[in-house]
């Protein structure tokens, strides 16, 4: 009951703000509703399938006509993600950090909108605000890691032969992610940020029951100088799309966050098709301190070791 009231209250507050003068009933401004679309290659298409679904909140309010993305949408998104990988992974780490920071700025600016959407999707105002604040802070956190995790996870290896040898992390490639289904904004940000901070590109399926924030977050990405295709966001049914995520031969790694053992098994089994890495975050509390760390970045990194000979002609070394 309390929740129902709060939704109304929030929307009232917002419409009042919109009016400026909430006195004349006849002149009440008609609100412009947003069409929630998916995000592929920096564009906002509808699903090619034309299908949609209508998520409903606990008080029975229809949230929107949301795209029910298809396998083809996923394939299109994969093509964008692969196409963006070369450029994004080659960006200067500093530049990636700047863009993640910009994402945080954009999210901060749209805070009210996200809080409103979360409240529509059954959060209390306090919960909503906490979630949005944490999401913003998480982006800042990973923005800072962009040019530092390499130093934590790399090594200069003292090989016994006359070679210079070092190991550095490099992005795994294109990551297919099914975002946490319950924490629809914080969970989404927590799985995307470490992946792109590390130079990967990704296709992400947002929360099925609470899809509003993932689409609005795409709008944040779109205005943050993040190149199109680095993050592609779909809405739809995990049970329908998960196996395509696992089977696609150009996916380098999959991320899955639910405890559903059958789906976990499916991911591991089908990932063998092209030796995908399978990353499971079924025990992570995204609200806790343990919900962020450079080890999340490391989960979508490969270690590359480079060798080069050292000329060894001179006699002794310098004595000074």
């Amino acid at each position: 009951m309390a929740k129902t009231t709060s939704i109304k209250k929030t929307s009232n507050t917002f419409s009042e703000n919109g009016h400026g003068n909430g006195n004349a009933v006849e002149s009440k401004r008609v609100e412009v509703l947003k069409t929630y679309k998916i995000y592929i290659g920096g564009q906002f298409p509808r699903t090619e399938s034309g299908r949609y679904y209508v998520p409903v909140n606990k008080s029975g309010k229809k949230l929107a006509n949301v795209c029910l993305s298809s396998r083809k949408d996923f394939r299109d998104a994969m093509e964008s993600a692969r196409g963006a990988f070369g450029g994004w992974s080659a960006r200067a780490a500093f530049n990636r950090g700047q863009i993640l920071y910009r994402m945080a700025e954009m999210l901060e600016g749209r805070k009210a909108q996200f809080i409103d959407e979360l409240i529509q999707q059954d959060s209390t105002p306090a919960q909503a605000e906490t979630e949005v604040n944490l999401a913003i802070d998480r982006l800042i956190y990973y923005a800072g890691w962009c040019d530092k995790y390499q130093q934590i996870f790399s090594a200069v290896n003292p090989v016994a032969s006359s070679h210079f040898n070092f190991s550095v992390p490099e992005p795994t490639g294109v990551i297919a992610i099914i975002a946490p289904q319950s924490d629809s904004l914080l969970g989404l940000v927590s799985v995307i940020a470490p992946v792109i901070a590390g130079g990967n590109t990704c296709v992400v399926l947002g929360s099925f029951d609470k899809p509003l924030c993932c689409v609005t977050f795409a709008e944040v990405l779109n205005s943050s100088d993040l190149p199109g295709g680095v993050v592609n966001i779909l809405t739809g049914k995990p049970s329908e799309l998960a196996s395509w995520f696992a089977e696609h031969m150009d996916v380098n790694a999959v991320v899955y966050c639910e405890k559903d053992e059958a789906t976990q098994k499916m991911f591991k089994e089908k990932s063998a098709l092209n030796v995908k890495r399978v990353v499971l975050y079924d025990k992570v509390n995204w609200y806790s301190d343990a919900g962020q760390s450079p080890y999340f970045i490391n989960d979508s990194q490969e270690i590359k070791t480079t060798w080069h000979p050292i000329e060894n002609i001179g006699g002794g070394g310098s004595k000074y």
Binding site: A155, N157, P158, V159, A160, S161, H163, N165, S167, I303, T305, T306, W307, H308, P309
Partner: peptide, 13 residues
């Protein structure tokens, strides 16, 4: 491997 090949060492991943 740059300007070398098939080198291995216990310290090298």
């Amino acid at each position: 491997w740059a300007n070398t090949y098939n080198k291995f060492d216990p310290t090298s991943p």
